[in-house]
Amino acid sequence: MTRTLFIGLGRMGRPMSAHIAERFPTAVHDVFREAVDEVAAQTGAEPVYDLAEIEGIGTVILMLPTSAHVEEILLGAAGGDGDGLLARLDSGALVIDMGSSVPASTQKLAAAADERGIDYVDGPVSGGISKAATGELTMLVGGGDAAIERARPYLEAVGSTIVVVGGSGAGHAAKAINNLVSATNIAVASEAVLRAQAAGIAPERIIDVLNASTGMSQASRVKFVEHILPGGYASNFAYDLMLKDMGIAMQIEVPEAASELSRTAYRILSEGRESLGDHPDHTEIARVYEHLAGTPITQEDA
């Protein structure tokens, strides 16, 4: 019987791999041996420490930090296809990249997989660790129709909403664009709070206004209420990962005149990164605006 190989056992990958292992014979791999041991013990999945020794793998699911990591796993450390995982998979295998990758890289890898008779699907996820734990992630999916249908049982194992957005790389483009909007919404809401304070309106009152009016967004309804105003900044999605996704979206070319709003938000948040400490949460976008204005906007700091 062919098995599923899940690679990448970070904060998102661990609960996702558990859902996969519940439904499919599964092996797990990560660069950190202790992570492999822990997940194998918790889920009953087979531990894999050396990818050069794999056999009988029909499906590979990747949950890795960047395209560089994905390319190294699939093509090999030198960027060729002689010693990477693609060269060791049989024709007819399926690869699903559920991380946040660069669309151009995804298209290159999908073409390399196709040359070997391997289906390739990009299915990045949205919803964070809480939705990963419950199996209710949203999957943004790109690839060929037949490949996506093959991938659907695996997508359904970790997600409750599957949105097919286009061909190869489209899922990764959609994820980056979504996070560009998400981050920009937090930035705009942070600026709104500062303007409201200048007008004598308390931060929590202007957030109430936004959430009762047409200015409401997920940033005002969830991020400010649960993480920013209380001062906890604990959404469990990293600032640096959000910034990475924004950068991917900014690589997608649009007419210059149409890109100033997002370009400005990306510049401010990139330059503002140095004002934050180690491993900031993405909701600390609000802290960047605090530093720029020299005015606290959280209940904790006020």
Rank of each mutant, 00 (worst) to 15 (best):
L261V: 15
A170L: 07
M139E: 05
A249L: 07
L140Q: 04
S126W: 00
V222M: 10
D97F: 02
V209Y: 08
I268F: 02
A41F: 05
D37I: 04
R221D: 13
T138E: 04
E115M: 07
R263N: 04
D245R: 13
E256R: 13
A249N: 07
T264G: 14
A151T: 08
A111K: 15
M1I: 13
L85V: 10
H291R: 14
D30C: 11
L269F: 12
S105V: 15
G56A: 09
H172W: 05
S17L: 11
A192E: 06
D278C: 09
T59K: 01
M98F: 02
F32W: 13
V28Y: 03
A111L: 14
I61A: 08
E156D: 08
T161K: 15
R33D: 12
A157Q: 13
D90Q: 15
T43H: 08
H19P: 05
A157N: 11
M250Y: 10
I177G: 03
S101Q: 06
A151Y: 11
L229W: 03
E72I: 02
E55H: 15
H282M: 14
G13V: 12
M250F: 10
G143L: 08
Y289W: 12
A40E: 03
V141S: 03
T106R: 08
V141N: 06
A265Q: 02
S235T: 08
T264E: 12
D119T: 05
A174P: 03
S217A: 14
I7H: 01
S160Y: 04
M139T: 00
R195I: 10
I20D: 01
L243Q: 04
Q197L: 03
T2D: 09
A112T: 05
V60G: 05
D37C: 09
S182F: 01
V39T: 11
R273G: 02
P280D: 01
R116N: 02
I297Y: 04
E260V: 08
I73W: 00
G231C: 07
T298W: 10
G167I: 13
V209T: 15
A293L: 05
N178T: 11
L74M: 00
G272E: 01
L9H: 05
K108L: 14
R195F: 06
G232I: 07
M250W: 10
S259N: 14
E72Q: 15
G167A: 15
A157E: 11
T283K: 09
S67M: 12
E156N: 09
G44I: 07
M12H: 00
A52H: 14
F6H: 09
I129V: 15
